[in-house]
Amino acid sequence: MLTVQFLLLGAVLFCIGVYGVLARKNAVMVLMSIELILNSVNLNLLAFSSRLGSIDGNTFALYVIAVAAAEVGVGLAMVLLIYRNRRTIALDELSDMKG
């Protein structure tokens, strides 16, 4: 197997994830897209781990999974909070960051 095939798969997933983050309005969908990005990163880590014959990539992939779990937990809690306060989770209606 080629190294590049895994890396390219990661790249495809990453770009799809980026598209999702940018294009989606629903906060839950944005979180899902972020999961896609994180998975593409994991794929890269494991591919390089396998290529270099080093265990470190596996370790970091596990850490990424754990961080992703924490991120989803907090992210969804925030979504719930926003929904409760505003009755919507459409991100483009949240314009408090308007400069």
Partner: peptide
């Protein structure tokens, strides 16, 4: 017009 400014998505798009 106001709907379209100050949005995270746009900043994100510019960032990426």
């Amino acid at each position: 017009r106001p709907v379209q400014s100050g949005k995270v998505n746009q900043y994100g798009a510019l960032l990426f």
